[in-house]
Computed example of a mutant assay.
Amino acid sequence: MKVEELDFELPQELIAQMPAENRSESRLLVLNRKTGDISDRRFSGIAEYLFPGDCLVLNDTKVLPARFFARRTTGASLEGLYLDMSGGGLWHVMLKNSRKLKEGEVFDLLSSHGSVFCKILAERRLDDGTWHIRPQSDLPAEKLLEHIGYAPLPPYIKRSRGGEKPDYDRQRYQTVYARQSGAVAAPTAGLHFTDELLNRLDEKGISRAHVTLHVGAGTFKPVTADNLEDHEIHSERFEIDAQNADIINRTHQAGGRIVAVGTTSVRTLETVAQSGGIHAASGDTRLFIMPGFEYRAVDAMITNFHLPKSTLLALVGAFAGMDNIKNAYTHAVKERYHFFSYGDAMLIY
């Protein structure tokens, strides 16, 4: 598939810089993938399209405050993104403005107030440009990030040094059901749910299952190849336990629909389903879903609007059909929907 087929024109002003004031009052584009029909709704009314016996599958990953700031002894500023631990107390990070940084150099890790929190050693620059660094602190990474970190908003959401209201972003760039720490980007389709809305769906007889997929920075990696098949898909850690696998299987057996909330839930379910049915599993997935892929587990999905020429746009195109997705995105632009992480949502069924 040519990557150009995933391109579309998007006015910059439609890229959401802030979330809706109330989570569930974001807009919802509803796409019937069989007929191609499109409806404009509010997310708070999603229960209209969900039925007793359906099951929502939610990714319960918790976003780490993974963005941080540092300062070299020269006074030069650094901006970092924590990716994961690399063993032996080393952090694996991305560092902006690090071209002149040298291996073995010690610099200052700054607190959220701008003061020096601790020293940090630039241990090794990796071949892909990322770094292994070693904080000179006894705190575990997650605890240390609580002191120094900001919400790891994607680069198209503009915030100077963490923004004027960093606590607001840390709260809103997190689902209300997040519980398993490890992501450095949010599963954004879930940001539209409130506890109140979830309770209303419970009362309607819609069950819930949880999976975990820790969203990595690779989710924003642009596709630079001409052919989609030549793109190297990123790897992400996932887990589904026996209890939640059983909820999903019982839903299928009773004739209910599996409604995946977000492409991360889709990717988890379809990864597990490749080996036959839904069962307890964990590991790393490099599943690349593109047009021609045969879905085995997902009957409907809730998702945000994705970047042009992205693997996530290919994923939803594989589910709904590329013509339907192109029509839906043209409609969304015309009707001034908001796009990407803090933007509006789609329901595809």
Rank of each mutant, 00 (worst) to 15 (best):
Y177N: 04
I240K: 06
E229V: 02
T224R: 14
R161L: 12
R208P: 05
I240R: 08
T219F: 00
D246Q: 09
R161A: 07
Q180T: 13
E196D: 13
E229Y: 10
N227I: 11
E164G: 06
E229Q: 13
G162F: 00
L191M: 11
A189F: 11
I240P: 14
D195W: 06
A245E: 13
D202H: 05
T251K: 05
R170I: 05
T224P: 10
N249R: 14
H252I: 07
L201T: 00
I247V: 15
S235D: 14
E196V: 01
D169Y: 12
N249L: 08
T212H: 09
S207F: 03
Q180W: 06
I248Q: 06
R250A: 00
T251F: 00
A209I: 00
S235C: 06
K221P: 01
G162V: 00
I248L: 14
E164K: 14
I233Q: 14
A185R: 03
I247N: 11
R250Y: 00
Q243H: 09
H192W: 08
I247A: 10
A254C: 08
D246H: 05
R179T: 06
N227C: 12
G163Q: 11
A178K: 05
D230T: 07
G190T: 04
T194C: 09
H210W: 06
V211R: 02
V215C: 00
E164D: 15
E236C: 02
Y173F: 12
D246R: 10
S235Y: 04
Q171M: 15
H214I: 09
D195G: 03
R208G: 02
N244S: 10
T212L: 11
A217W: 06
D169W: 05
Q253T: 02
Y177L: 03
I233M: 15
A245M: 10
A186G: 01
I247Q: 12
A185N: 09
R208Q: 13
G162S: 06
D246I: 00
Y168D: 14
Y173H: 08
G162L: 02
H231C: 08
A245I: 05
I248V: 12
Q180K: 15
G190N: 07
I206M: 10
D169A: 02
G182M: 15
E239H: 10
P166S: 04
N244R: 03
A185V: 09
L213S: 07
A185H: 04
A254I: 02
D226Q: 14
P222W: 03
T219R: 00
G162K: 01
P166K: 01
Q180L: 11
T194N: 12
Y173A: 07
N227E: 15
E239F: 04
H210Q: 11
H231I: 06
D246G: 02
I240Q: 12
N244K: 02
L197M: 03
E239Q: 09
A254N: 14
R161Q: 12
D202P: 00
G205I: 01
T224N: 09
T188V: 13
I247C: 11
G163L: 15
K204A: 13
G182S: 12
H214M: 13
E232I: 13
P187L: 13
E239N: 05
D226L: 12
H210V: 03
V223G: 15
E229C: 03
